[in-house]
Design a protein around this nucleic acid. Sequence first.
DNA 1: GCGCTTGATTAGAGCGCTCCAAAGCTTGTA
DNA 2: TACAAGCTTTGGAGCGCTCTAATCAAGCGC
Lengths: 331, 331
Amino acid sequence: MEDVAARAGVSRALVSLVMRGSPQVSAQRREAVLKAADELGYSPHVMARSLASRTSTVLGVMVNDLRNAFFADVVEALDAAASAAGFDLILNTGGRVPSRESSALRSLLSFRPAGVILLSPVVPAAAIEAAARQCPVVLVSRTSRASGVDTVNDDGEAGAALAVEHLFGLGHRRIAHLDGGAAAGAAARRRGFRRAMRAHGLEPVVVASEHTDAAGAKAVLELLSAGDLPTALVAGNDFNAVGAISALEENGLRVPADVSVVGYDNTSLASLRHLSLTTVDQSRAELGRLALDALLERVRGERASPVRHLLHPSLVVRSTTAPVPVREGKS
Amino acid sequence: MEDVAARAGVSRALVSLVMRGSPQVSAQRREAVLKAADELGYSPHVMARSLASRTSTVLGVMVNDLRNAFFADVVEALDAAASAAGFDLILNTGGRVPSRESSALRSLLSFRPAGVILLSPVVPAAAIEAAARQCPVVLVSRTSRASGVDTVNDDGEAGAALAVEHLFGLGHRRIAHLDGGAAAGAAARRRGFRRAMRAHGLEPVVVASEHTDAAGAKAVLELLSAGDLPTALVAGNDFNAVGAISALEENGLRVPADVSVVGYDNTSLASLRHLSLTTVDQSRAELGRLALDALLERVRGERASPVRHLLHPSLVVRSTTAPVPVREGKS
DNA sequence: GCGCTTGATTAGAGCGCTCCAAAGCTTGTA
DNA sequence: TACAAGCTTTGGAGCGCTCTAATCAAGCGC
């Protein structure tokens, strides 16, 4: 910066003004500075800037697993929105291990970020509130009652209900849910499934499972050996659904002719023509965008009261659901 | 920091020493400082630290698309290795658009990172060399001849050859490659396919396609309408393979009974029991780890000469490949 | 008791920038 | 010509830390 100032024949302060795009610099000087900066290949040192200005242009993002396409998509959206607003992301992973997440969070905070976004964290609420005392915090796929914390969630209850309504409309009455257990969002989906079933006077069947391919297959095998396979399945997520479909087909049952299956998440899997899975979509891009917007509102001091976004999911009907088989329909 | 020093009854410099874990501090003072820091919830300001010490603990990572599971996996590995080494990642996306990538790269460099990792960038070589003059640069899935730049690549040629060898061993002689066009890594795979085929005295058939589900299906339809469907397909990647399989099955052909298909990348797709795709695996975790190791060697000044890693892929044989159909074998 | 070494501690400068208050330069006007 | 009013420009302090060199206390041999 010193060098640029010398080369352009101005003071350091003027260089600073130009680099920040201040309007109160004469066109002549501005050009001289820009030219000098270009010749010297100078670009301002972000860290020094944020130290001096006591403002930060970095946003901390903690994700528990990037290999999970859901979070990868959200982070992608986050990054797009952040860079459009002139912020940079510092990212780390916590792996859904409380101790690792705490240290990841600590490491993010030591950058004195403008704000922090936590994707489906498992750290204790107290840790989140402590973080919120240092900078705005937005939670994705996790709820909080703290007033300094905003949350953005998929309405898993509504999503599961959507699946049930769809199947009910197709004539299905015996519907089972393959439950995701402790996985992110599973509790809400389970709740939504139960509620929607009861609303129709149906008995909700919930089978313990996990959000994986193998677990979906296992759950179906259990249902088969128990001897009363439902006519439709609401899987915990798409992977689970695919596993379930495999197990069904391996046992001579056709999807959707014999059994209908609905997934959840609308991952890239679901749209493959090979699977063409009916599934619940929860726009991950919007999730990311909303989270970033909420954070920036806080950062800019435009809002102090917490906001709780609950995204409305939608159903994407493809080829794994069909009207209930005739025999069933008659019974 | 001032406060901590006051509370512990020591100087700022001593606090600094303790926070950096210097051994030349008496146990008594160390404890007093740690206690004070804890009570005040103090943790050092990373940016101020790196400004003062003229060292950086941030690593810049530019990825073109996180939604691509391949890169998400590499980033995950990068993060794991980085945090183990005490570094933090600042991440942004370039979307394979040269202009966006350049500005993303500029933004990374303005943090004065210890080093930068570029995942399959499309920026001109000159831009990469310019970056390399500022800090060590490691390229993943892209080659470079610049001496300040290390590269880590999957050996796509070897991978495609692996697929051909496998199919050849199963008796296949008419094998086509569904080419990925300009996609990352496609050129090497194409080359490897051609070379391996010629090594067996076979005519390499290359069909233009893309690394997507839909393109794979389209390529198969073209082969079908041309009237000479090969007995085996080496797809550009897993998505492409899945699309191809769909199109084959929709046309009454069985995989692998009639046609064998090999994918590439061993994505989570491939391992689904529903697909159980034979595919080429190029350990993404190792790719990430190697890239980070290479970068850290430079950062620590342990090495000045460039390194060119070429990762050996391996073949994962699942259920989409089988011996050539008998009729073919006789002909 | 003296200088001397050794290890623990600290003052102070400085990293690259921003920001404030003050200074300099134009104008326009009396 | 003088001077206020506006704009542009600048010096200097300071952001939170590290690092060097200096200081200090304690222990040692003579």
